[in-house]
């Protein structure tokens, strides 16, 4: 029974408008308990306006080895960046 509690990843938002940020994990048997633990462990001091808990096994992530092939497309599309486009000298606010 000792090893029965699931692992949950905790994300905390410090104020509205900010992104939820990963802060660590807790062990809990179900979501409400995970949320309460997350509050006690990661929100003892403000400011916190929102907490997400996610079962660790529900996270499907890239592998470090993916770095090259997986993210490559971003490097080959310079036309997504504004500086790719030339503007005549002296033209402002464009």
């Amino acid at each position: 029974m000792e090893n029965g509690l699931r692992l949950w990843e905790v994300f905390v938002q410090s104020r509205t408008g900010k992104p939820h940020e990963h802060v660590g994990s807790v062990r809990a048997s179900h979501a409400e308990m995970a949320l309460q633990h997350a509050r006690d462990v990661y929100a003892r001091r403000g400011p916190v306006v929102s907490i997400w808990v996610v079962p660790t096994e529900a996270i499907y992530a890239t592998q470090p080895g993916d770095e090259g092939p997986f993210f490559d497309p971003a490097d080959t599309k310079p036309y997504r960046h504004p500086l790719f486009y030339k503007v005549p000298h002296g033209v402002k606010n464009i």
């Binding site: 029974m1 000792e2 029965g4 509690l5 048997s29 179900h30 308990m33």
Partner: peptide, 12 residues
């Protein structure tokens, strides 16, 4: 407490 938590989780 740990046992109660497990029992509760099973029940759910």
């Amino acid at each position: 407490v740990r046992e109660a938590v497990q029992a509760y989780a099973r029940k759910r």
